[in-house]
Computed example of a mutant assay.
Amino acid sequence: MADYFDKALIFTDLHITPAGETIIGLDPLARFKQGLAHALDRHPDAQHIILLGDLTHTGSPAEYARLAPALADCPIPITVTMGNHDLRDHLRVPFPQAFNTDGFAQTALDLGPLRLLILDTHDYEGRAPLIHDGWICDTRLAWLDAELARAVTDAKHVVVFAHHPPCPVGFWAMDAIGLANADALLSRLHAAPHVRHLICGHIHRTIHASAANPAGGALPVSVLKSPCHQIPMILGEGTSSDSVDEPGAYGILLALKDTIVLHTEDFALSDGSVRTYE
């Protein structure tokens, strides 16, 4: 049995609003601060924190300006990428380190035996059919190709992160605004046997799926909840703005010698209190 594991914490879909504004009566910044404090208290040994897109609700400078101070004193390195509610130029002001030399919020990190590849799925060119769809352009796909090859050279197993899931999850309105060029991503991941898992956000629900490989087998896919508001469990019909006050959560990724484990931790209860343990 392993006596040590490497650990990363994952928050997605923060949806920070301007001061005084709420989402279904919830203050997203207050909920995120609760979640971050909960995570840091219980997991001070984590090596990374990943913010997996939709940091803000509309991408305004005021929203990013509210978020940045909440992260300023965090003792764990933070990696940020984009979601459909973010705006590239505005995010760059408080988080210039998030962007690579190509101008995208894509990063490769090591977590023990794992290589974590964080993708930028923001459709900055308007290539996708719908406004909240995700899209990965040729430049970003070329970066992914190079990093997948480098991970082979470095003998690393790979976990990929993308805000938009590349497979349907059963919420029709959300499936309609997924990753529009999903095949371009999945064809690469299916061709890379060292890719072990794909972690996404966007849906505001804890979901486990598999993206089938036409050549056989499937890639495990996990979707994580928001620390703030969730999508109600109304499968099929609905809208992408349906929201419900259910417990907020964050993800905990463990890298063991031969196993990848993803936990999800509910920290905020529906009455606004924070979950505690004896």
Results as ranks from 00 to 15, higher is better:
L51C: 13
C74Y: 08
G272W: 07
W135L: 06
I199W: 02
R150E: 14
L224G: 03
G236M: 06
A62F: 01
T264A: 10
G134N: 06
S240E: 10
L254Y: 15
P165A: 04
C74G: 10
E21D: 14
A68F: 05
L51T: 07
R88H: 04
S60K: 09
G83Y: 09
H90I: 01
Q106E: 15
I10S: 00
G217P: 01
H229G: 01
T79Q: 09
N213P: 00
C200H: 04
A62W: 04
G53A: 08
A37S: 15
L141A: 03
I24D: 12
N181I: 02
P75A: 11
D138S: 13
N100Q: 10
D123I: 02
P166M: 05
S226W: 09
R127V: 06
R150V: 03
P18V: 14
L52G: 04
F99Q: 12
D102T: 04
G251V: 05
H263M: 06
W172C: 00
T139Y: 04
P247A: 13
M233E: 15
G236K: 05
A173Y: 06
D6W: 11
T121E: 05
V261S: 14
G248V: 04
P18D: 15
L109G: 12
I76S: 08
P232G: 12
A212L: 09
P75Y: 12
H164N: 10
Q97F: 08
D73N: 15
G248A: 09
H163I: 00
V93D: 12
V244H: 08
G103M: 11
H194Q: 14
